[in-house]
Amino acid sequence: MSARFIPNSSEAYALVSTVSRHHFPSGNAEAGLAVLQRNAQEEIDGLEADSTSLGDALGTTLTLAEAHCLMDPRAAIYPTWDAWVTAMQVGSAVFAAATATEEYVQCRIAHKDRALQATGQQWYVHPGTWITAFYLAVICREKDRITALCQVPVSLLRENGSRFEEYDYAWIDTLQTYWLGGQDLVPKLVSAVDGTDPETVADPETVGKLVYPPMEMFHRFIRKDHEGFNRALTQALELHKQYWSEEDRAVSISGLVALAPLAMTCLAHDAGIPVEVESEYLPAVLIGRNWCGEFPT
């Protein structure tokens, strides 16, 4: 594997059992949630009239799901789970509509089956959106939706025209290969990791603190390296905290949950790897899949 992977030695990284979340103001949390909820519902209700609003709806519903975790960091109450499921449904709908071969496709979003127009390629059908949709489906344990996402051609994501790095496509290829049981998983992961070399990327801070860490976690996961996985998880959370503690980012809702490490942790949990790290960045009830199956999704 790449030299950038964390070595197995326990001296390489000391296991930390708890990673606290950076300070985030919560004075107007309830009012802010109410506004986000109204905005999300309005966008969802407008999707049948204009399905090309799916990209905006995904951004709003994901923000709402993460915002719920400010006051409910364990995701212990029903409204938080409901928000995460809705974001997951919108993320999956993005690609169901983009790849639909008929004029309409049926998608369940926010407790209602909706007839969405086939959209084809849109500005938001790109690697970043796919990775977000995949993580959400993993967190919600939606196996059929994960499979559908993994059947989305990487070539479709390249058609977008947006500027993305090769490591994005290599990471998607890796995740699709893993889920579908394809060949050359390790070489594909190595390609993704090598693409995050800080000497070659445009934004080494973001790549080093947010993009590379879940790749390292995945590496330990597929090797069934329990100790290495928990070391990588701890490092991922500490780097996430460093990134989102910067003054210009500290009040961004996106920093409240470590989405990629959370998804990798859900994979590990379901595979029997003991998760030995606790953090408000990782809603424990989502990891434990306590709410799964409570209502049709």
Score class of each variant (00 low, 15 high):
residue 221 F to V: 09
residue 14 A to D: 08
residue 3 A to H: 07
residue 265 T to M: 01
residue 49 A to H: 09
residue 159 E to I: 11
residue 40 A to T: 06
residue 296 P to L: 05
residue 231 R to L: 05
residue 227 E to K: 09
residue 109 I to R: 05
residue 122 Q to Y: 03
residue 273 I to W: 04
residue 2 S to D: 13
residue 262 L to F: 08
residue 287 I to D: 14
residue 171 W to R: 13
residue 269 H to E: 11
residue 237 L to Y: 11
residue 273 I to A: 09
residue 177 T to L: 10
residue 77 I to M: 10
residue 164 F to A: 08
residue 220 R to Y: 11
residue 36 L to K: 09
residue 296 P to E: 07
residue 195 G to E: 01
residue 161 G to L: 07
residue 64 L to Q: 09
residue 53 S to E: 15
residue 10 S to Q: 06
residue 282 L to H: 03
residue 98 A to T: 03
residue 20 S to A: 12
residue 35 V to S: 15
residue 102 E to S: 10
residue 195 G to Q: 04
residue 226 H to G: 10
residue 187 P to F: 13
residue 255 G to W: 05
residue 233 L to I: 08
residue 95 F to Y: 10
residue 253 I to V: 15
residue 8 N to S: 15
residue 144 D to W: 00
residue 201 V to Q: 03
residue 199 E to H: 12
residue 206 T to A: 13
residue 176 Q to M: 05
residue 154 V to P: 07
residue 296 P to A: 04
residue 283 P to W: 14
residue 169 Y to K: 11
residue 69 C to K: 00
residue 129 T to W: 04
residue 295 F to N: 12
residue 202 A to G: 05
residue 36 L to I: 02
residue 242 Q to A: 13
residue 37 Q to D: 10
residue 267 L to S: 04
residue 221 F to G: 07
residue 112 K to E: 14
residue 262 L to K: 01
residue 80 T to V: 02
residue 119 T to K: 02
residue 281 Y to T: 05
residue 16 V to G: 09
residue 271 A to P: 15
residue 110 A to M: 06
residue 297 T to L: 13
residue 252 S to W: 04
residue 1 M to W: 07
